[in-house]
């Protein structure tokens, strides 16, 4: 592996580290989402670096995988943004609190009861 490829791999590793750190630490959902995108790009950068084959033509399989990966990442991000907008409209929240359990309060309103 040449020096420039090592550089790409190092950059990808740093980006992946930053992404994972961000997902775990960030509170605001938009930040979490940006961090996940960073992680995604790191994985794709790693993939495309792996496809380099010296001076010859790059490996087409990794390129196809990366294009597919980008499309999936765009769809996931747009779904997440739509959910975030809806969440903000309905609850006025932009953070997920650390309470995965529902309140066992008054009338636990039934999902799908309409």
């Amino acid at each position: 592996m040449t020096a420039s490829l090592t550089l790409y791999m190092l950059a990808a590793s740093v980006l992946a580290g930053l992404g994972i750190y961000g997902v775990l630490i960030a509170g605001h959902l938009l930040r979490k989402l940006l961090a996940l995108n960073l992680l995604g790009m790191a994985v794709l950068l790693m993939l495309i670096t792996l496809g380099a084959r010296g001076t010859g033509a790059p490996d087409p399989v990794t390129q196809a995988m990366v294009i597919t990966g980008i499309i999936i990442s765009i769809s996931a991000t747009s779904l997440a943004l739509a959910l975030l907008l809806a969440l903000q409209r309905v609850t006025d929240e932009t953070h997920l609190d650390a309470e995965p359990l529902p309140p066992v309060g008054e009338d636990g309103d039934a999902a799908g009861s309409r």
Binding site: L33, L36, L39, A76, A80, A86, V90, R114
Partner: peptide
């Protein structure tokens, strides 16, 4: 689907973890 607060929070949580898992 129903845009209820609980469901939206659950979907968001699921989506973030699913993205992390698949990456």
């Amino acid at each position: 689907l129903d845009r209820k607060a609980d469901a939206l929070r659950a979907a968001m949580r699921y989506l973030l973890l699913a993205m992390l898992g698949s990456l």
